[in-house]
Design a protein around this nucleic acid. Sequence first.
DNA 1: GAAAACAGGTTAGATGATAACATCAAAGAA
DNA 2: TTCTTTGATGTTATCATCTAACCTGTTTTC
Lengths: 190, 190
Amino acid sequence: MITSKKTSRPRASKLARPSGPARHPVPAHVLRSFTPARHDHRRCVSAALSKADATCNASGRRLTPLRRRVLELVWRSHTPVKAYDLLAALGREREQAAPPTVYRALDFLLEAGLVHRIASLNAFVGCGEPGPGHTGQFLICTACGTVAELDEPALSKTIAASAERLGFEVRRETIEIAGLCAGCRRRGAD
Amino acid sequence: MITSKKTSRPRASKLARPSGPARHPVPAHVLRSFTPARHDHRRCVSAALSKADATCNASGRRLTPLRRRVLELVWRSHTPVKAYDLLAALGREREQAAPPTVYRALDFLLEAGLVHRIASLNAFVGCGEPGPGHTGQFLICTACGTVAELDEPALSKTIAASAERLGFEVRRETIEIAGLCAGCRRRGAD
DNA sequence: GAAAACAGGTTAGATGATAACATCAAAGAA
DNA sequence: TTCTTTGATGTTATCATCTAACCTGTTTTC
């Protein structure tokens, strides 16, 4: 995952989202869209880190160098990243890196709402719109591995209605939809 | 899980669902409801096994003694069962029981649609309405551990609509809603 | 009855996650 | 400032979950 990251090309400074006639314009409820084929991923990552700095400052949380570094590694890829891949990446750049190092950082980032855990993959993705309250709704492409994050109130509303009828009190929603993203369908991925 | 199963009382042969004025009558889209406090669980399990026999016969799959036994162990409890609890239970009744024994049986049962995997718990539950095509929608009570399975077309429809707008082709839905069931709320569980 | 396909046993190990305790640094109180 | 408390991380060990690979025996199919 981490190892297979495509080296981003700094000079391809098109807009982050292609300006041509997109076949599937990104609706407003999409917190994190599928990766445009070519985009300046450096910008993508640094934007995420800036947001993280801001939200941590605002909430009085300490985004330490280690935590920030783990967040950066998570954002390095648009596909979910495994804890042990993070561990390996950390191990390459510093002496000390044991499982608790990574898991503690991830716990912090999860709690701060900066990353999400994808239960069906045992993996983690950066959150496109950090902050409390929004729940995980994900579309996961099984071909390219990319994840899009939704915040679809209609979905939560439907769930709430269904739960209501059974007298069930909703606390946490795990919604992970696996399938094929538009790009992979177009190029005929299975 | 397996170890903490309540011994079912064979003589309490009320109906499986209480006939009194239920506060939350079970709607039709509920494939597997929260356990009524008292029900003849033996009947519950044997019904599941009969259904399994039937669907396997119909589809030409071989529900071997081992697979059938694992399915029975899964159904022993209305809460999701962990693979290693199954392994321990098997180990008590036969010599040979290693992880692959259980995981292979579970793979078969998953494929046959006889059990579901709850990704957020790394655990398995029996499927209330075996057969292909229906996707996992679960309400999970964090207090008593019981799981209800839904087949709420409105939910799938909402997801389909959302995916459609992004050109995403849905293949598999993982919907796991954690919270409190009616019973646990009533008795004031946290 | 031989070949092929399938079920299961067995060994080993990869991957995922946590407990428990030690150390050091930052933040707040005296 | 110095002391004290809290929080972050290092370190070791272990538990939990899942899979690969290879082998044996049993059905199924031809």
